[in-house]
């Protein structure tokens, strides 16, 4: 479904990712793991279209090279970015409405929003408050919900657990798990190795812009050295 080949990503003159290849099948949850500065966010930004890259990114068979940021989203790629980036001065409800800006079935949009408010009553209670007043965990839920409002084919999740308390973290991962079992295709970037391994069908380990290892989670789970490398715990 999503296929990156020899992808190089640039930040201005600096090359942050040096030619990696990644495949995500429909319905899979693929994790991209690695330490700070490994190039995870750069990779995901390239897919979303907000970073310069060389090499090819193919989505459902079509090359994305000439496709703008906006059209990538319209093609079904949704991003829940690092740092959440909710629209803090807009209300919770308006944030969700913007997520559905490309849809024209107003009634379905309304019922989807209500669905989110029911499954996350915290959001429902504060639907008319500005989103900036939400806590970190609530903002993360809102970010994921906002991305899903467009009914995407694939969800790019960038560090959803960043800066969250362990308990809230579990809540976020429970949501991701639910999404996965509902059949959503997910590319998950994480530093939180244990949970990400738990979820993933397939894992890529990224280190200083290269893929240093890959495999399904069983392979990783049994390799003690690799776990050490990933978690930094020896």
């Amino acid at each position: 479904m999503l296929e990156l080949t020899h992808l190089k990503v640039f930040h201005g003159p600096i090359e942050a990712v040096h030619g990696i290849s990644i495949t995500v099948q429909r319905g899979q949850c693929v994790s991209l793991l690695g330490p700070n500065g490994a190039g995870k966010t750069s990779t995901i930004s390239a897919i979303a279209g907000i970073a310069d890259y060389q090499g090819s990114i193919r989505f459902q068979g079509a090359d994305l090279a000439a496709i703008s940021v906006e059209d990538r989203q319209r093609a079904g790629i949704a991003l829940a970015p690092e740092g959440r980036r909710i629209f803090s001065n807009l209300t919770v409800k308006e944030n969700l409405l913007i997520g559905a800006a490309t849809r024209h079935d107003r009634r379905a949009v309304r019922s989807d929003i209500n669905h989110w408010f029911e499954s996350f009553p915290v959001l429902g209670e504060r639907r008319d408050q500005s989103a900036g007043t939400l806590s970190g965990g609530e903002q993360q839920m809102l970010t994921i919900a906002r991305a899903l409002m467009s009914k995407p084919q694939i969800l790019l999740l960038d560090e959803p657990s960043l800066g969250l308390a362990p308990l809230i973290c579990q809540q976020v991962f429970r949501l991701i798990k639910e999404l996965k079992s509902s059949g959503m295709t997910i590319l998950l970037v994480e530093q939180n190795v244990r949970d990400a391994l738990d979820l993933a069908d397939y894992v890529y380990l990224l280190n200083s812009g290269h893929i240093s290892n890959e495999g399904d989670h069983n392979v990783f789970g049994n390799d003690a050295n690799l776990m050490a490398e990933l978690t930094g715990i020896h």
């Binding site: 906006e70 319209r74 629209f87 001065n89 807009l90 913007i98 800006a101």
Partner: peptide, 24 residues
């Protein structure tokens, strides 16, 4: 209006609005 909301959002984070599929 939904376009008006998008414009307010754009004044906060223009790139994020584009990531929502709204044409810059």
């Amino acid at each position: 209006s939904s376009f008006g909301i998008a414009m307010r959002a754009a004044s906060l984070d223009f790139e994020m609005v584009r990531l929502m599929g709204i044409k810059a």
